[in-house]
């Protein structure tokens, strides 16, 4: 008898089957974000490899060019730096002044070559750093993370303002299902640039509410992104701004 009643009781508890589609949607989104992260990671690694390869490939040419440079300068015998015409940096012109170069001991000439090589490889390194920085900046723009400890409380008045704003944007109910929306503002946190609200977007299904997504919303109420709880905190991408859709 216990089994019969327990089965009947549980059978009457119907889950929301629409959740299955939500699960597959979320899985797709996660897969996309995984691909993006992998691409960014491999992009950075590829850039580093390219820089190293470029340095290795062009090193003999740079070396040859630099070996020729002091000779050309000394051959002109004057203030004109013929080979130096390709040197755009004005400071490099002062490295091997023609007058000094005429009687320059060999060791000093080599110093000039070394300085020029250093300049060329510095330029390549700077380029590599710039490209890595661009990738890092790109990631910083598209991703955010916050730990639970960084979240602080929001006043009830503020919660009401934010919730009313979200209702004014998304409506009181979902158009297709007529399920009533519920915006729960959990707290607030600061990033280097902005202050965000952290919230949960739910809707009422029958007599209980069901979670649609967690979100972050900036204090200016202009950007709202889906976020994912990851045990110790939340992370989000700025790929889709709900307020722009």
């Amino acid at each position: 008898m216990f089994r019969k009643y327990y089965k009947e009781a549980n059978d009457s508890l119907e889950p929301n089957r629409a959740l299955i589609d939500e699960i597959f949607e979320k899985a797709k989104k996660k897969e996309k974000s995984k691909i993006y992260k992998l691409a960014a990671r491999y992009g950075t690694a590829m850039a580093a490899v390219l820089v190293i390869a470029a340095t290795a490939v062009f090193y003999p040419q740079i070396k040859n060019l630099n070996e020729q440079l002091p000779v050309t300068v000394s051959e002109t015998g004057g203030g004109e730096v013929l080979a130096g015409e390709s040197i755009e940096n004005e400071s490099m012109r002062t490295i091997v002044p023609a007058e000094e170069n005429q009687g320059m001991p060999k060791a000093e000439t080599n110093d000039a070559v070394v300085t020029q090589e250093k300049f060329s490889s510095d330029a390549i390194n700077k380029e590599a750093m710039r490209s890595e920085q661009a990738i890092t900046e790109d990631l910083a723009v598209t991703e955010g993370r916050v730990s639970m400890d960084e979240i602080y409380d929001v006043t009830d008045a503020e919660k009401n303002v934010v919730s009313s704003f979200l209702h004014s944007i998304f409506g009181e109910r979902d158009e297709a299902t007529q399920n009533k929306f519920l915006f729960e503002i959990v707290g607030k946190f600061d990033t280097d640039e902005k202050t965000f609200y952290l919230g949960r977007w739910r809707w009422w299904v029958g007599d209980h509410s069901s979670l649609l997504t967690e979100f972050v919303l900036d204090e200016n109420l202009s950007n709202m992104y889906e976020c994912i709880a990851n045990g110790e905190g939340f992370s989000w991408t700025t790929e889709n701004n709900f307020l722009e859709e």
Binding site: L13, P15, N16, I20, I23, F24, K26, A27, H208
Partner: peptide
Amino acid sequence: NREMAEDVVQEVFLRYLK
């Protein structure tokens, strides 16, 4: 709790799909 049960269901199947 029904909400929490739904959260668990989502988590379980997301892990399964992954």
